[in-house]
Simulated assay, not measured.
Amino acid sequence: MAGDNAFKVRLDAAISRHNKGMQGDRTAVKDAFAQLSELRAIDSNHALLEAYYGSTLTLMARDADKLLDKADKSQQGLASLDRAISLAPGNAVIRLIRANVCLRLPENFFGRTQTAIDDFNDLLARHQRQPDLLTPIQYKQVIQGLATAYENTGKLTEARTTRQRLTQPPDDAIQRGKGASKDGKKPKVRKSK
């Protein structure tokens, strides 16, 4: 069922509402939660759906008035994000979602900054082996998120070293050398006759 086009269209609409909710739209958060809950009833093992569901729960926690509701929704959201990772541990989007949620939660209440550090480092290690894993914008977000996570845990040297990566050329360009092609070989220069 999760593979059909109607399911995908509904999931895309829910993700769009989730993204509006991330910008502060409380109505969009409620809409996304309702849509994702309905889709979860159809396919409870869809990893990407589970990740957005978990992220939406943490947005609901952000918007909750009562402290107990904030804590409960955050814990439920984290459980869903962890479940999404267990369903698809190699999915970069899911790992990026969890890393960013864990980064934004207060460390003194949830203790999940190390999860963000682990997820960001996992993404960077895999991106080094597979350079098209992250878009340039995602790569920058991962570097910035990792540096912030290090700062939040008092690891200032690691944060500084991580931030320096933003000013360096991509790893694959360094390995190839200036003027080299993607296979690492210098281009052949034709001599004119």
Rank of each mutant, 00 (worst) to 15 (best):
Gly3Asp: 10
Asn5Lys: 14
Asn5Glu: 14
Ala6Asp: 09
Lys8Met: 10
Val9His: 11
Leu11Gln: 01
Asn19Gln: 13
Lys30Val: 15
Ala32Trp: 00
Leu36Asn: 12
Arg40Lys: 13
Ile42Asn: 01
Ala47Cys: 03
Leu48Lys: 15
Gly54Met: 04
Ser55Asn: 06
Thr56Gly: 07
Leu59Phe: 05
Leu59Glu: 03
Leu59Arg: 08
Asp63Tyr: 07
Lys70Cys: 00
Asp72Ile: 13
Lys73Leu: 12
Gln75Tyr: 02
Leu78Val: 07
Ala79Asn: 11
Arg83His: 13
Arg83Pro: 03
Ser86Cys: 08
Leu87Pro: 05
Val93Asn: 11
Leu96Glu: 06
Ile97Phe: 02
Glu107Asp: 10
Asp119Ala: 13
Phe120Val: 09
Leu123Cys: 04
Gln130Asn: 15
Leu134Gln: 04
Thr135Gln: 03
Thr135Val: 01
Tyr139Lys: 01
Gln141Asp: 09
Ile143Tyr: 09
Gln144Arg: 10
Glu151Arg: 11
Glu151Ser: 07
Thr153Val: 08
Thr153Lys: 14
Glu158Trp: 01
Ala159Gly: 02
Arg160Asp: 10
Arg163Lys: 14
Gln164Val: 01
Arg165Phe: 00
Gln168Lys: 09
Pro170Thr: 06
Ile174Thr: 10
Gly177Tyr: 06
Lys178Gly: 10
Ala180Glu: 08
Ser181Lys: 04
Lys182Asn: 15
Asp183Met: 00
Ser192Ile: 12
